[in-house]
């Protein structure tokens, strides 16, 4: 085996894109202790990599007990919503270079849902609110033999809210939801909107009545946290406003 030439080693190290970043992670494992602790990890990472890559480096090379959910790793499955430097983001859609890697990157579970272990929260209340708005097409009468017609304009009307991946970044960024877990939360309203404004749907009145509830759409204080948090770029606050307007005018 040839000895590496010094020049080459230097050249490689000079070209190395890797930097050292501190990940400051909020740890909690009730099997071990009731206490929440913050733990720092030093990670060698290319700034073009994702926060999820950093978490994997920790889990795979430093501490196998670090626990988080993830699957697709490119912002489609909605598994890895977390608080990154205090903001709700998907770990797989947030690049290190966009976070000021000079300072420690703080990683916490999303808020307002019970933490079960490290970054894993209980998603059940979130999905229950989703189920409660009847998120499926409701129609009356006989089914047509071919497809239901829908003009491109009518299709476009609810396009934005079809993008939701149920990651809970919006709902768990909402101060109203933090204070009162009974509030349906932005994600459920977004998914109600998706059907209320679908020209094929005939269940709008039922859904509006559900959202007219004391824990419904009127709790929204338009802080825009949800819109800012949405990794799919859905104009959530606007969608909530449209639902409120539909409740007043009964036109949708």
């Amino acid at each position: 085996m040839a000895t590496p030439v010094l020049d080459k080693v230097e050249k490689e190290s000079a070209a190395s894109p890797y930097i050292t970043v501190t990940f400051r992670v909020r740890r909690f494992n009730p099997e071990v202790s009731d206490a929440v602790v913050w733990e720092d990890f030093q990670v060698e990472i290319d700034p073009k990599e994702r926060v999820l890559d950093g978490l994997h480096k920790i889990k795979w090379d430093l501490d196998g007990t670090l626990t988080f959910r993830r699957s697709c790793a490119h912002g489609i499955c909605g598994s890895d919503a977390m608080r990154i430097n205090g903001k709700n983001r998907l770990a797989c859609k947030t690049l290190i270079k966009d976070l000021n890697p000079e300072k420690p990157i703080t990683i916490e579970p999303i808020k307002g849902l019970t933490v079960l272990k490290d970054l894993v929260v209980d998603m059940e209340p979130f999905f229950q609110a989703y189920r409660d708005v009847m998120p499926f097409l409701i129609t009356k009468g006989n089914e047509p033999t071919r497809e239901r017609k829908q003009s491109p304009e009518d299709r476009e009307r609810f396009d934005d809210t079809t993008k939701c991946i149920l990651c809970a970044a919006c709902t768990s960024s909402c101060p109203v939801f933090w204070n009162d877990g009974q509030y349906f939360g932005p994600a459920a309203i977004v998914n109600a909107h998706r059907f209320i404004f679908d020209s094929r749907d005939e269940g709008g009145e039922q859904r509006l009545e559900i959202l007219n509830d004391k824990d419904g759409v009127w709790r929204c204080r338009t802080t825009f946290n949800c819109t800012d948090a949405c990794p799919r770029g859905i104009e959530i606050t606007k969608a909530i406003q449209e639902v409120k307007r539909a409740l007043i005018t009964r036109r949708f």
């Binding site: 071919r146 497809e147 239901r148 829908q150 003009s151 491109p152 299709r155």
Partner: peptide, 20 residues
């Protein structure tokens, strides 16, 4: 299979005359 999904509510892209 496509028509079933449409009837279940799938928001397909549409032609100018409203078909899938």
């Amino acid at each position: 299979a496509v028509l079933d999904l449409e009837k279940m509510g799938l928001p397909f892209g549409r032609t100018p005359n409203g078909d899938i």
